[in-house]
Write a protein that binds this DNA or RNA. Structure first.
Lengths: 191, 191
DNA sequence: TGTACATCAGTGAACGCGCGTTCACTGATGTAC
DNA sequence: TGTACATCAGTGAACGCGCGTTCACTGATGTAC
């Protein structure tokens, strides 16, 4: 299938547009991404995207869902490799921070209320959020059985862990914290 | 001094512009604030701001510096009221989270690399950052003398504390974490 | 104390820009018979 | 197997928009003499 400008029925323009936008997202924040530039990157006229996305916000929301899925799956993969509860929690946090460090703008998009409003997740986003909450809750439930962690409120601890890891992710992403400093900082905290 | 549109020599237009922008910042993120709207709010023509700020970015940067100063001073005030090292650290974190909850867009501006680039703080911003780092370092230095905290690496612990508190601030600001959940979460973490 | 004049701090008009979106269109595809 | 036709997925032209910024200007202020 040709990618020439005159080609009708691109075949997979929806995915191609998301790919192009994701590539732009490595350079610029979501707010600066224009539909026209995305279309240009995909080699398509500036209003072809309207056949696949209602408007600019819909494209960026779809991108946010995709990023959230990647973030979640990275955490799931990281946890799989470990059996010790403390090691699993460390791996979970490490994957979260790594994702933010490797895909800063994609990570930011997931938490951008303009495109991924919290409190009103749609049918695509909601199950991902639930899965992530359950993943964290399960790991913390195992953690509080460990010596040194017994008796802590699992819910409060889960919130604390999330905040810590999220804070590290944001600070690393913005360049305020060296990436290598994240793991020692987490260890010092839950020593 | 009249505030009518025809008034020359406003008297304190620089401060008035910052005030107007700060008010807009309660409603919208920094990226959406336009120089023209700020000027309108200040009751002045759309290019009067150029007499006081080089361009739009300079105004927003000045706003960021102002917000950083408020954030720092809120922490300093909070710590003053406590003597127990653990209570001081809790107060420090509480003030940080409260500032973000009360002034979400101003808080976000302080960490917006578009207007307040990290790594290259200017002469106004740099001393505030230094003061904040010293404040945190001093409190952590006292904390690691306390039973249960001895032997921890102060630098790593300071980074961990900052990340935790920053994460809470961001999550509360975005509505992902109820404000009341922040303090219990911090307590569960450093129990 | 007046006066000439430089400077400061405003003004409105105008510019070009890229954007999101709408419109009427057309070529390609798939399906019913 | 052909054919008629609905639908799908593109096209280029055009729109209005608010914006940042520049320009030439003018009234108010402060200062040297």
């Amino acid at each position: 299938m040709s990618r020439s400008r005159a080609t009708y029925h691109h075949g997979n323009l929806q995915a191609a547009l998301e790919d192009a936008a994701l590539e732009l997202l490595t350079t610029q924040p979501a707010a600066k991404i224009s539909l026209r530039e995305v279309a240009r990157r995909a080699g398509v006229s500036h209003n072809a995207p309207y056949n696949h996305f209602g408007d600019r916000a819909a494209l960026l929301h779809a991108l946010g869902v995709r990023a959230m899925r990647e973030l979640l799956e990275a955490q799931e993969r990281a946890v799989e490799g470990e059996s010790d509860p403390i090691a699993r929690v460390r791996a979970l946090g490490g994957a979260y921070v790594d994702y933010a460090a490797d895909h800063p703008q994609a990570f930011a998009l997931v938490f951008d209320p303009e495109y991924c409003p919290p409190g009103h997740p749609d049918a695509d986003m909601a199950p991902l959020i639930t899965r992530n909450e359950e993943l964290l809750a399960a790991e913390v439930a195992a953690l509080v059985q460990q010596p040194g962690f017994t008796g802590r409120d699992p819910e409060a601890l889960a919130a604390g862990m999330w905040a810590t890891v999220h804070g590290m992710a944001v600070l690393v992403m913005l360049g305020h914290l060296p990436r290598e400093a994240a793991q020692p900082a987490l260890d010092a905290l839950i020593a």
